[in-house]
Design a protein around this nucleic acid. Structure first.
Length: 867
RNA sequence: GCCCGGGUGGCGGAACUGGUAGACGCAAGGGACUUAAAAUCCCUCGGAGCUAAGUCUCUGUGCGAGUUCAAUUCUCGCCCCGGGCACCA
């Protein structure tokens, strides 16, 4: 063993050894218990950043640990390779998204290899390869055949100058990020997956995922947003022109139906135009609709707008109260939720109340709280609580809870409505008017309409020689040889290929299955491999994916399940949502967001390294390529090596916690490894010839006994920290304490078993650290005389009998404050502890002459004397 | 705005299921070794106060209430920070 720890040399040496030995290559071994460990695959943005390192280190520790526990561990890695940044980069560099993407993959792969992750690289996949997306297209055809994929009109952010669709991220304060002009909402025919068919099933199974964090379950449930209520139909009254005869609304407060005084329709609602046509309001309504089309209509944005609306000029009838009610179109009504129409009850809904005040609309109280009588004149806010019905005909005097049920039944009996369940969840829009994505395998024929591409034509290849357009639009519609096809049904030469590509969330909804048989050519995956490996036992990734990616994956899995392709409904048995690595952003007025390396710190205010302008420091937020607040781990890797980098990322915080990046402390990790190294190197000659001590510690010399017990205790602590909760920071602390104990050993060189006990301590420390600092551990392990990899060694076990404490420290409190301590035998009973505490000198000082009111004895812990 | 998290020394964090707040590490200060530096080792280290000495006193886990013999931990109200909000991935 070298005297000095030299990470550079040992890391490349072991990386080569692992690769040569194919140490992490796995295959189905039906007789062995499998463990599928998966980390969310990265978007190949160019460089691995520290957030990736954190995520993948956590996964690697678990993978290596499980291998040592005897599992057949599948631990794959690949690339979520389609997506918008490749197009932006291609426009900026005048290159091609594919070139950029594959270069990034090559670079990032080599970075990951340098960190020593134990992937089975033979299973690597990239979603932008036709061998991958052809099966996604195949499934799309199956989904289309089952009605799970369909087309409907919906809105996109549209920039007229750039002639392109913008992602939400590309819209900054309502303006296009490229040209700075106003963005408007444009209606397009787009493809959707019918996830709403599975809303109930996805919801019900939320409670059958005990391995998922509670917070993620809650977020998913809220996202699905089931609400139980009623659909009520309001007949439209007279007016000029041809009119649909009723408006249907969904409400959870059918008890307040007698208090409905007006209606609001979403500006996109098809009735808005017909209702206002020919009335004096027509012009005002058109202006309103026009203005709304230029606004961001997402729920988030709508919540922040001042509530406003316009009268449509038409009325409808409240079927319960008989009231004639004006119909408005209002900005807060969303077409996506319920029926796109809201029955407004100003007395019992704050938003409706504000709206009624603003436009001078009637208010009718229908629910009275128990202790007072509400009058319209005195009402300053909506009353949303429970109470007793009034002004509600035959339902008066009924508690409103009961009225909900009674009114629902009444509506149903009289054909005015029915009890309904509504979900907030909307169908998954998968159409992207982009180039760098998987083509949707459909054809538009002027005579046959929408026709699926024949299965034997798959994959529908994304043309590789397209040039990206300046404004960011997709070149696909303009590529004749791609978009011009003959209709598979009638043979017409006038047919056009669908030029929308799929949302990249589709690729990430089944990559975990593809990993099971990445080279399979007969289908999406080899059923036998999937039956063996799936579901994923442990999935690890950022909390930012808690809703969309995870919900889409759960949905896609159900689709596969119902087609008989897989046996399970839930793809991920256990989930660990890693906290994000955050950092403040830095921006230059001239050059926009700056990488940390482009900020010149120096004296006074930080400046832009390119132009010297003063840099504005933004808020702390998650590291992302677009904000450029990313830390390149290369500096750490070069200076300290992979093991220290890994150790530091884990030691900094428990995995689920967000981490504001700071390099403070990385030296400590490096020092610790050196400290272990020096200890091992110094006593290696003595240790090589003995085997580790496995006996009970009791008969050992005092110092050795202490070290032996500490070692067993450390094995237990580390095992629990890894196994139960992935708290590697405390696991590392525990080993640090063990190493401190090794140094603190007062040496008795001639005591029996001396070298064996030290070997046990050193070897245990190395084994416990091995998943975290694998190269370091291999090197010391080899120096101890081992011929095979440490990762073929079993995880260390501890002796229960070595954990028994000889005596305990008992705390004496007076009125809850710690006043004294004493040691007692482990089996001391309550009465003994009580007497011992009551006679304690220091406790007596605080008791003084006050009478003792109560004494609380907590076994093995404390005695609290209340005076 | 809505939903989900988080807030503990100068810093990262620890504290099992309500039972000694600050483990482990970083930074800082002091000392040892050295011609010197690095490395290493030892000591101090939440705040305030008192002392000849401390097993000293008070105070302290974002803020304010509450439950309890006992609250970082449970309950309620508030403040601040992060994430998600359906085309970033």
């Amino acid at each position: 063993m070298e005297e000095k720890y030299n990470p550079g040399a040992i890391e490349s040496k072991w990386q080569q050894a692992w690769e040569k030995e194919r140490l992490f290559k796995v295959d189905t071994e039906p007789e062995k218990e499998k463990y599928y460990l998966l980390e969310m695959f990265p978007y190949p943005s160019g460089n691995i950043h520290i957030g990736h390192v954190r995520n993948y280190t956590i996964g690697d520790v678990v993978a290596r640990y499980k291998r040592m526990r005897g599992y057949n561990v599948l631990h794959p890695m690949g690339w979520d390779a389609f997506g918008m940044p490749a197009e932006n980069a291609a426009i900026a560099n005048n290159s091609h998204p594919a070139t950029w993407t594959y270069e990034n993959i090559a670079n990032m792969r080599s970075q990951l290899k340098k960190i020593g992750f134990s992937y089975d690289w033979d299973r690597e996949l990239a979603t932008c390869r036709p061998e991958y997306y052809r099966w996604e297209q195949w499934l799309f055809l199956k989904m289309y055949a089952k009605g799970l994929a369909y087309r409907k009109e919906s809105y996109v952010n549209w920039c007229d100058p750039c002639q392109t669709v913008l992602a939400n991220e590309q819209v900054e304060a309502g303006m296009c990020w490229r040209c700075g002009k106003e963005v408007r909402q444009k209606k397009l025919w787009q493809w959707f997956f019918r996830i709403t068919d599975y809303a109930e099933d996805l919801l019900v199974h939320c409670d059958k995922l005990p391995g998922w964090p509670e917070k993620v379950i809650t977020m998913q449930k809220n996202w699905i947003g089931k609400s139980i209520g009623a659909e009520i139909r309001f007949p439209i009254i007279g007016g000029p022109g041809e009119k649909t005869d009723e408006i249907s609304v969904f409400t959870t407060r059918q008890d307040t139906v007698f208090g409905v005084t007006f209606m609001c329709l979403a500006p996109e609602h098809p009735l808005v135009i017909t209702l206002s046509e020919g009335t004096a309001q027509a012009a005002a309504v058109n202006v309103f609709i026009e203005r709304m089309s230029r606004q961001d209509r997402t729920a988030k944005a709508v919540e922040n707008y001042e509530k406003e609306g316009v009268f449509t000029g038409s009325y409808c009838l409240n079927p319960m109260s008989g009231r004639e009610m004006p119909i408005y179109t209002a900005n807060f009504a969303l077409m996506e939720y319920g029926t796109g129409a809201v029955m407004c009850v100003p007395a019992h809904d704050q938003r409706d109340f504000d709206f009624a005040q603003k436009y001078g609309l009637d208010i009718v109280v229908v629910v009275n709280p128990a202790d007072e009588d509400l009058t319209v004149d005195e009402l300053t806010a909506a009353y949303t609580g429970e109470g007793v019905m009034i002004n509600s005909g035959s339902f008066d005097a009924m508690p409103n809870r009961e009225a909900m049920e009674a009114i629902a039944r009444h509506l149903e009996a009289h054909g005015l409505g029915k009890k309904t369940v509504s979900y907030r969840l909307r169908d998954w829009g998968i159409s992207r008017q982009r180039y760098w994505g998987a083509p949707i395998p459909m054809i538009h024929c002027p005579t046959c309409g929408v026709v699926p591409a024949p299965e034997e034509d798959l994959p529908i290849l994304l043309p590789e020689d397209a040039n990206l357009l300046e404004g960011g639009g997709s070149p696909l519609p303009g590529l004749e040889y791609f978009s011009s096809v003959s209709c598979p049904r009638c043979g017409s030469g006038e047919a056009r290929r669908e030029t929308d590509t799929m949302d990249t969330f589709v690729e990430s909804s089944w990559y975990f299955e593809r990993y099971c048989s990445p080279d399979y050519t007969e289908g999406m995956f080899d059923k036998r491999a999937v039956d063996y490996w799936m579901p994923v036992d442990q999935y690890i990734g950022g909390v930012e994916h808690a809703i969309l990616h995870l919900l889409y994956s759960r949905y896609y899995t159900r689709v596969l399940h119902d087609m008989g392709l897989v046996k399970y409904k839930e793809p991920f048995t256990c989930l660990l949502t890693q906290g994000m690595v955050c950092k403040e952003t830095t921006a230059c007025p001239e050059h926009g967001f700056l990488l940390p390396g482009d900020v010149a710190a120096g004296e006074g205010t930080p400046r832009c390294a390119i132009c010297g302008e003063a840099v504005t420091i933004g808020r702390v937020e998650k590291m992302s390529k677009s904000k450029k607040n990313v830390i390149d781990p290369n500096i750490l890797l070069e200076r300290y090596g992979a093991d220290t980098t890994r150790l530091f990322c884990l030691f900094a915080a428990p995995p689920e916690r967000d981490l504001e990046w700071s390099e403070q402390g990385v030296d400590g990790g490096y020092r610790f490894l050196n400290r272990v190294w020096r200890y091992a190197a110094a006593c290696m000659d003595d240790l090589k010839t003995v085997s580790p001590y496995t006996g009970a510690p009791d008969t050992l010399e005092a110092g050795l006994k202490k070290l032996c017990k500490k070692t067993h205790e450390t094995i237990r602590r580390v095992t629990r920290d890894i196994e139960d909760r992935f708290h590697f920071n405390t696991a590392i602390s525990a080993v640090m304490e063990l190493v401190n104990a090794m140094y603190a050993l007062e040496d008795a060189p001639d005591a029996p078993h001396r070298n064996s006990v030290v070997r046990f301590a050193v070897e245990s420390a190395i084994l416990l650290l091995s998943p975290i600092v694998p190269h370091f551990a291999e090197e010391v392990w080899a120096a101890l005389g081992n011929r095979t990899s440490i990762f073929k060694a079993p995880w260390p076990a501890y002796r229960e009998d070595a954990l028994v404490k000889d005596e305990l420290l008992i705390v004496v409190q007076v009125n809850g404050k710690v006043r004294s301590r004493f040691t007692a035998a482990v089996d001391a009973d309550d009465e003994f502890l009580r007497q011992r505490a009551l006679s304690d000198d220091r406790a007596l000082k605080f008791i003084a002459d006050k009478p003792v009111k109560k004494v609380v004895v907590v076994k093995k812990k404390l005695v609290n004397i209340v005076v």
